[in-house]
Design a protein around this nucleic acid. Structure first.
Lengths: 123, 123
DNA sequence: CCCTTGATTAGACGGTTATCTAAACAGGTG
DNA sequence: CACCTGTTTAGATAACCGTCTAATCAAGGG
């Protein structure tokens, strides 16, 4: 969490790592990238992320998305994880806390999954 | 592993679930999709996947990719996980076993990360 | 037929994680 | 200030996961 988290936070996010098909990842690249995938690798977190991402302006109050079948503290725990992974940001406005999807993150992860030129040739 | 695995295996893979930004995922969709992300959420697995994906024809012998800093049984373990998640297929040809990336899987995961129309309007 | 090389399976161990309950904190309202 | 609602933090527990060594399976070559 500690040092890895700093590295993730320090990333431009728009361009962390090459596409998975471009060349093999270095150990460090793999560690950074895996952290993002890992954050989305839990059903509850994925639902929370999806709820925020599909809300208007990609923003939602905790109270709007907390209904995912686990206790509220657990929801808070997962939101924290998503935040640490750089996938969400949060802001308190009065009583409520709003979570927002960083659009650049989606683009970066999408880039990671760009099909290889080689397979494009084959296809 | 069991029932989830069957469901994952039964998917067309080309179109498992809607984009994360399209609408909030159902519990079942989230479980299926999270399984894929989870498989890529480990640095060693991600490196193995990247090694296969970036090889010519998106195919590689275990002997070509096994150098990721862990023992060979551990490599085998991770390859099995990737295979169970539907991200890789394997085939034995004589002495060696070859792993291959299913191109449709990359496309499906890329689709998941499609930016929301709303954010596109904003941008 | 044995032996070597490549790969997987079995079983165990240590660390991580998801979850809960209980408690604390933050902000608004009467 | 007291209270209520919304949110996070603390601490504990049970399950899961990544890793290893040892053993087993698969395929060829003397």
């Amino acid at each position: 969490m500690s040092k890895l988290q700093e590295k993730v936070a320090a990333l431009p996010a728009e361009r962390c790592c090459p596409a998975l098909t471009e060349r093999e990842l270095t150990a460090e690249e793999a560690e950074l990238t895996a952290a993002m995938f890992k954050a989305l690798g839990d059903p509850v977190r994925l639902r929370l992320f999806s709820k925020v991402a599909s809300h208007p302006d990609s923003e939602a109050c905790v109270c709007d998305i907390a209904d995912v079948g686990v206790s509220q503290p657990t929801v808070s725990h997962h939101l924290k994880k998503l935040k640490e992974a750089g996938l969400l940001t949060s802001e308190r406005r009065g009583t409520w806390v709003y979570y927002r999807v960083e659009p650049s993150v989606l683009a970066a992860m999408g880039h990671l999954l760009t099909p290889t030129p080689a397979s494009a040739q084959v296809a």
